[in-house]
Nucleic acid binder design. Sequence first.
DNA 1: ACCTAACTGGACGACGTGTCCGTTTGATAG
DNA 2: CTATCAAACGGACACGTCGTCCAGTTAGGT
Lengths: 208, 208
Amino acid sequence: MSSRRDLLTGSPIDAPARGERADAARNRAKVLAAAAKLFAERDARTVTMEDIATAAGVGRATLYRRYPDPASVARALLDEHERALQEQLISGPPPLGPGAHPADRLAAFYTAMVKLLEQHLPLVLGAEIGPARFATGAYGFWRAHVRGLLVESGAPEIDALVDVLLAPLAPEVYAFQRRQRNAPEQITAALRTLARRVMPSDRAPDRP
Amino acid sequence: MSSRRDLLTGSPIDAPARGERADAARNRAKVLAAAAKLFAERDARTVTMEDIATAAGVGRATLYRRYPDPASVARALLDEHERALQEQLISGPPPLGPGAHPADRLAAFYTAMVKLLEQHLPLVLGAEIGPARFATGAYGFWRAHVRGLLVESGAPEIDALVDVLLAPLAPEVYAFQRRQRNAPEQITAALRTLARRVMPSDRAPDRP
DNA sequence: ACCTAACTGGACGACGTGTCCGTTTGATAG
DNA sequence: CTATCAAACGGACACGTCGTCCAGTTAGGT
């Protein structure tokens, strides 16, 4: 078995199978292209499997063979972008990668995530709406990353705080903020403020 | 007309329309009772209008007469609890009501919201999952409240920050944290830490 | 060139939705 | 107490989506 990587993102769905047949590959490309178009031009929640199949010019069963629902298709499209950021976090240059102060790394992470959300909001809305967000491998990755920063910074109640700090990055929250006419820069600034204040820049022992 | 019975019987939680007929009131009560039971014992997303109607012993059309979807039913059940908290925020004693330091008021608000979420999580999940959360009047209220506190505390980027601070209270976030075996007290503690750190206790003018 | 395994897509049964319309109920006037 | 009428009820219908099944087709190894 080829065994694709995906230990962290856990998205087995997209794995371009080893000896993929030419027509299968062709259809995969058609599906992804059509889905990207659909998600971009319409509310993500209204995109059905039928829509994607029709737009791609394939039968529904063909679509179901690889993707159980529209969210999986969106996730497949999103995967590479998320993986790029994940590599930056692990081994890129500071402040995104290791080496900088936790507060700065968190701020950089927020900035990068806002950029990702801004560029691919339709896809993210299609992929991770509601509780589904927590089931994705990506969330596990962000969580582990921020948790590490919290440990390093000596914050209290780490396990509860980590999800609190990730909550503002939920796609629907970001979408709402943008609809409220908040510019991406404002949102980034607010998140960076949050990062700076939650993680004491100097040694600031916490007094409950 | 007249018919002012809701304070005593407590049955018509929803708007007891002027001159509501007896059979209508009876059905309203049956629907709400049945819905409360359903939401409590099953995943909110799986509760359909059909389910509620059947459990309440009324026809679907009768249900549709008042509620366009299951979320509306949950919201009707939730309404009185939220309104109680809203009154506390407006005119209750500090630190929940006016008079305390913004940081303390935000911390008290977080504590109260966690209590609300803990007590009525099934209903909240049924009422406000995903983007629907922002469409509710309640969100507008929490938003206005926290925004006022931010103004008072002199925080920067208020309009973006307010949604950031409310994001951790999204029902699905709370539900996820509880599934992760975080106790309500831990979550409250994390949120109170957040409140304290975001709002400088002393006058601390912000330097971008 | 054949043969097998994998892919394809139309068809099918099930379910939930939202509305229509004939029937029933209850409030009010006589 | 009864007649009347508007309001509420609920069974039934038409529709759209879902997820699966299966028979025909195609690609690639031998």
